[in-house]
Nucleic acid binder design. Sequence first.
DNA 1: AATATTTGACCAGG
DNA 2: CCTGGTCAAATATT
Length: 359
Amino acid sequence: MAFQQEAVGKLWEELGRGYNLSAKLLALLSQPSHLLDSHGQEMAVAISQQLSQVFRASLSMSNPGNSGRMVEGRATAPEAAIMEGSISQATPAIISGEEVTPPRIGKEEEITAEPYKDGYKWKKYGQKNIKNRKFARLYFRCMHSHERGCRAKKQVQQQDSSIGSPPLYKVIYLNEHTCHQAFPNVNITNANVPATSTTTRNGADFDHARRHLHVGGNGELEDRIMTSTFSTVIGGAAPAAPSLSPLQSPPPVEASPSDPASYDTGGGQSPSLLDLSMCLDETMMDEMYFSCGSPFRPVEAPAAPWSLSSLPPPPPPPIEASSIDPAAYMPSRGGHSLSLDAMTMAEIFLWSSPLFSPR
DNA sequence: AATATTTGACCAGG
DNA sequence: CCTGGTCAAATATT
């Protein structure tokens, strides 16, 4: 059914957002502790909060009973497609307001720290100082507004309250994209940010923070996290869905990665989520992105130095309806240790689980 | 030179 | 008349 495919696509988009946030958080936490100043700590908290919302929204979407909650008439930007779940906490009034009033065609609002990373290319056409606002409002239209007649627009307004760090922006999407061209957004280091217009003259510069966070610089971080995210979903959180079928029949597990050490999983004793996903070769993953509409590429996770001891003990696995036993990938407190990637993603998943009610 | 961005002017709605 | 949204010439960048 088309609607179901759309829902699955939105779920993937939400997970993609989680991927980006995970990458940032991992990069931040991978810094030597003495480099993680209060700014960095605040940012980590903000990112983790967003990540929590992402997983909450993803879990909500993965529940068939919630599928009807997808907002219709929303902007179709990849990130905008999942905004309801993400923003419901931040701006309930906005959401509730739109639900009780006749929906304006293709209008959606979002509070985000990343107003420019939504998978579409935008052209800035104006900037206006708004009364009683410290920061100017920026006006963008779809890059294809002319040659394809796409009427999609967005406005970006830095929140006055976000003068501290990290800055937050209200993004208002107007009109649907009719160009139907999402651009692969492969790089958390700003692949498609519209040049200088993204760093306002007002000094709000999340890109700066992103540069600060960027570690390695070779994309491995993103790839690893994406791989782990995919695997987490496949292994535990995601119900069977038609468009996910390519993932549900991966090559045999015994066809393990040729060199496990090359993506250091911290020991690699038990089968990790990463091991599983590594069965998907690059070609398959490429096909997946485009068939599923995901703008994100898979990557590997770096060895990270942090301790998981401060995290709360995991609740029971929320879902077991999968050909892959999620319990096998849950953090093992007593016995053998789990690979870092699998543990990290499992922890993140479990962290958000109080928001999720097992069926 | 081509393309992208900036920014003051213009316009419409309230 | 004020405000927000858009236009388009000037300027900057590649």
